[in-house]
Amino acid sequence: MLYKTMVGVNKHLNKLISIGFPQLEVGSDTLLKAGELMAAAGATKVLIVTDAIIGSMPMTETLCASLSQSKIDYFIYDEVKPNPTIAAVAIGADLFHQHSCDAIIAIGGGSPIDCAKAIGAKIVTNRPVRKLAGKLKVRKKLPLFMAIPTTAGTGSEATVAAVISDPSAKQKFAIVDPNLIPDYALIDPSLMTGLPPHITAATGMDALTHAIEAYIGTYQNPLTNKFAVQAIEAIFAYLPTAYQNGENIEARERMAMASYEAGCAFTRAYVGYVHAFAHQLGGMYHIPHGLANAVLLPRVLELLYPSSKKRFAQLARIVGLEDGQQFIDAVDELNQQLNIPKAFPELIVSDIPLLTQRALAEAHGTYPVPSYINQQQGEELLKLFLV
């Protein structure tokens, strides 16, 4: 099969690409270090990339105060929406030049961080955003870049990818390049204590999806397995607590680190069908990415289980269970604890063939899936989520 040949070739090429890590700063009030770190790295004016909600919160004031204390000027771009678009990236790049910035700080969830990555990529390549889709199209170091996640889910502060939406095509695409990894990642659990439970749930399951898909894919290796196992253990142990008691700082920090570790795993071992279908649902209906992953995850695992029983048995042992089906049941139970829905009210029957076609094209062209599903299987999968 051509897909298998492509994945095999990409696996060997993947080993030749050096993927680094950001300088990691972890702990409550780590945000206060932002100005000092950026000043030491030579920043003089920063483009702060965020959304309107985060931009209006005290954490952004704290960030700005830290920059000012270190004599760094800044401009705030706070118009990023969920599923950032090509236009949002272009506006951000224009603002970077207009205000003579020399560094970027993203503060927020995966959308501001991905948008900031794409802004940096557009700045250094001076190419249309759509032409950066795919692998290794950037090839230049981004401007000095710091990521400050405010959710524990995307792991974008540790990854080589930025996912951008093309509203005209109702699709998402990924820009993938090692240069997208931030120079600094500040993980401050105190920024996450006010997250609403439903966002805690969806982002936490997003991180779990990253770790599981990295672990069962054919690109997995001892390093990615280590990160994935640590993330899976922590998520099962701490996500229910973070959901039930958002002020629990230990649970927040452990979930934040799990998100980072899952990011380290999947940026080297990639993801799979859950993400491929979630991207299409997000592009077509604007369903939040973490929520789409959470709803899809147990049903996709059921589809893959018969061909990957050994790997699923290993997943079961990670969380103290005996076999792969018990692990899938545990994922289902975790979704139930977190009040994750079982269907997508937005899903339209007539869209299912196109959604499946696009998802399989993404998965088979990019991801080292453990086994292959066909168009009919994909359509039957999506029908499970009709209301």
Rank of each mutant, 00 (worst) to 15 (best):
A152L: 08
E346G: 03
V46M: 11
H198G: 02
T154P: 01
P353V: 09
E157I: 11
G283P: 14
N126P: 07
N245A: 12
I164N: 11
L303G: 08
D183K: 12
D166G: 09
P306D: 07
E213G: 11
V80W: 00
V26G: 04
L296Q: 12
N221G: 11
K11E: 04
V9F: 12
R127M: 08
I53K: 14
I181H: 07
Q326Y: 01
N10L: 15
V9E: 11
A40Q: 08
A258P: 00
I318P: 00
D332H: 12
P353W: 03
L354V: 11
L239V: 15
I340L: 14
Q220Y: 05
Y372I: 13
E346C: 08
P288Y: 04
H198Q: 14
L354W: 12
Y243Q: 09
M1K: 02
D51Q: 12
N335S: 13
N179G: 15
A359Y: 04
S100C: 09
S66T: 07
V271H: 01
E157D: 10
P189A: 15
E261W: 15
F344Y: 09
G378A: 07
G110Y: 04
L296E: 05
T224A: 09
P112N: 13
A343D: 14
M57G: 03
Y77G: 04
Y270R: 03
M38Y: 08
S66E: 09
K226Y: 11
L354Q: 15
G120Y: 05
G365N: 08
N179Q: 10
M59V: 14
F344I: 07
P22Y: 06
S111G: 08
D114T: 09
V129P: 02
G263N: 10
A147N: 06
V369Y: 10
L384A: 09
S56Q: 14
V129Y: 00
A363M: 08
G365D: 08
C64F: 00
L304E: 08
H97D: 05
Q171L: 12
I72R: 10
I113R: 09
K310M: 14
S350I: 05
L195M: 10
T125R: 01
G194R: 06
G134K: 06
C264L: 14
K310F: 03
I187C: 15
K117M: 01
N293G: 06
Q337Y: 05
E261P: 13
L321V: 05
I318N: 01
A251H: 04
S100T: 14
A106D: 06
R252G: 13
G92P: 10
T62L: 12
L291Y: 03
I48G: 10
A231G: 06
N179L: 07
F145M: 02
A343V: 13
H289K: 15
V229Q: 02
T209S: 10
P298C: 06
P368W: 08
F312W: 04
